[in-house]
Design a protein around this nucleic acid. Structure first.
Lengths: 158, 158
DNA sequence: TTAATTTTGGATAAATATATCTCATTATCA
DNA sequence: TGATAATGAGATATATTTATCCAAAATTAA
């Protein structure tokens, strides 16, 4: 409902990196396989993330990528903005009116601003470190439900 | 940020109809011109709205369209759903995980559900009647700022 | 009954988002 | 130095969304 496939992929890749932070470099192809993301497509997203210094990349044999700074210093909002570009200057009106500002507001302006602020705040507060922890927890929950022996068999973006 | 161009156009057209509710039928081409929407594109959107009985249409000379029921009985949510189709059954996970439910939740699940609920509630509460009133008010505000004589000159989707 | 006018619906085109492919560039290992 | 393994980057392909065009069907006015 909210973001593009590209943003979704980027988030997944960043979570992967956060979860493997300790292990040094990870390869784009490995991440792509893990989350079933088209390899070359992810490579392009990685370039955007690198431009914004959210990722550091290293070429050549034994190369790969890693987070540009500690996982608790990268917010979800930063990841999304790196992919989608910064939000448009005169913020888009929900119902597409040309003129819509705090002074001359469309009927939904105030409520929409509230929602937008909430979304932004939520995404800003979530760091990759939080998400990595959350994913670990989620995997435990899942293992409890279906039995750990089935977990590996599920080739999903868990 | 949230909805497609199609939904945006549909909302604009529905607001137009709500504002002209008293005047009987309006033509698709008139609305298209008023809001600078591609005529044939709007015609298709109108068909979707008609399918959901949000609009009643009449062919032939003196034909046109009008709201399917009183403006205060049509919510913004209904308009959007008519265009985008009903929301997907197993609700999409924000970060695109295959498994993400109340039981096995992704790290953002709870907060995202809160946001989604808020959006839905907001869109549900807004009727076309509310929006029509809001638009009238907005036009008054704008006239106050730039002078009513300039208002007509602005060929905008005000 | 004919002509005009309006929505309906199908075919097509353009724009954008997503996906794939190929080769260049960089770095390491043998 | 040469072979290998990785990202970088450009060209191309596919899918989806948005936009345009044209003729058919329906309705009314004259």
């Amino acid at each position: 409902m909210l973001y593009s496939k590209s943003a979704e992929y980027a988030i997944q890749a960043m979570i992967y990196l956060a979860e493997h932070e300790a292990r040094g470099l990870a390869m784009v192809s490995t991440i792509a396989e893990a989350y079933d993301i088209p390899r070359h497509f992810l490579a392009k997203l990685v370039q955007s993330l690198t431009r914004d210094h959210l990722i550091k990349s290293f070429r050549g044999r034994n190369g790969g990528i890693k987070l540009g700074r500690p996982a608790d210093k990268i917010s979800l909002l930063q990841v999304i903005n790196a992919i989608e570009g910064p939000p448009p200057e005169p913020e888009m009106c929900v119902i597409g009116l040309d003129i819509c500002s705090d002074q001359v507001a469309c009927p939904l302006h105030k409520q929409w601003r509230h929602i937008k602020d909430l979304v932004e705040e939520t995404l800003h507060k979530q760091t990759l470190a939080d998400l990595a922890v959350g994913m670990r927890h989620k995997r435990l929950e899942l293992a409890k439900m279906i039995g750990p022996e089935h977990l590996e068999a599920l080739k999903l973006r868990r």
